[in-house]
């Protein structure tokens, strides 16, 4: 999978999420970074739809975390903006196990990395011309290999 992406429309951001759905596995942690409006929720919407989540994936901000079932894997969608730190996902009172799910955390950089031995960081950004960009940063050798298609 390419590491750098230019995403002119929100559909392109969703398509990148859908492409990620093809490579994620149970227990995966994906950490999304980027400013307000960079496409973090849109990317997760594409990922959720491609996993087969039946309901629309909406922002988890108000409730901090939402669990979406009914797809190929359960999707745990977290907004960590308000959290001081997450020692354990148990702190979030989720009725889901992260070992069986793919966990996507918005605003989670520096807070949630310990939830898995390895994770994928997706750096989203919003350029002055309103085009979004994404850089996939594998954090660990297994993610590195997976993005290189060497499964």
């Amino acid at each position: 999978m390419r590491r750098e992406h230019v995403l002119p429309t929100v559909e392109d951001t969703r398509a990148l999420g859908a492409a990620l759905a093809a490579v994620v596995r149970p227990g995966d942690l994906v950490v999304l970074t980027g400013p307000l409006g960079a496409g973090k929720t849109a990317l997760t919407q594409g990922l959720g739809a491609a996993l087969g989540v039946p309901e629309p994936v909406t922002s988890p901000t108000f409730v901090i975390a939402r669990v979406h079932r009914g797809g190929r894997l359960p999707l745990v969608h977290v907004d960590a903006y308000r959290l001081g730190g997450v020692a354990d996902v148990d702190d979030l009172d989720l009725d889901a196990s992260t070992e069986e799910s793919v966990t996507v955390v918005e605003w989670g950089a520096g807070l949630v990395e310990q939830l898995a031995d390895e994770h994928l960081e997706v750096r989203l950004d919003r350029r002055d011309d309103d085009v979004r960009t994404a850089v996939l940063v594998p954090r660990g050798p297994r993610w590195e290999a997976r993005l290189d298609g060497d499964r």
Binding site: T61, F62, V63, I64, A65, D79, Y81, R82, L83, G84, D91, L92, D93
Partner: peptide, 11 residues
Amino acid sequence: RFGGVVPEIAS
């Protein structure tokens, strides 16, 4: 303090 609802604190 968190600027939002934190489930465990709420319970």
